[in-house]
Amino acid sequence: MRIPCPYCGARDAHEFAYLGDATLTRPDPAAADAADRFHDYVYLRDNPAGRHQEWWYHANGCRQWLRLTRDTRTHAIEAAEPARRDATQADMPGAAS
């Protein structure tokens, strides 16, 4: 699988580290049910067949986090956006509008 890094261009997946679901929000540690919520957040992950948003870190490249939209059945990558960007990178290829 090759991942289209917005900065580096298409690169082999071996250059990246995978984190997982990019749609989850870290629970509030001060909430009364924080222990249960953290259990869900850390351990109970969906394993969808199809469209998936996920974090990838370009460890052996530009050292930036990316948010990928990938089909887990075909590895087709629909979008690869920098997780963080500043105003000067707005026109970077793959940048979200």
Binding site: Y7, C8, G9, G61, C62, R63, Q64, P82, R85, D86, T88, Q89, M92
Partner: peptide, 21 residues
């Protein structure tokens, strides 16, 4: 440019290694 590119001066080189780096 803020790109993965090497620019050459007289006795110097600038290489982009990441966004803003």
């Amino acid at each position: 440019l803020d790109r993965p590119h090497a620019g050459f001066g007289s006795g110097s080189t600038v290489v982009g290694i990441g966004p803003g780096r």
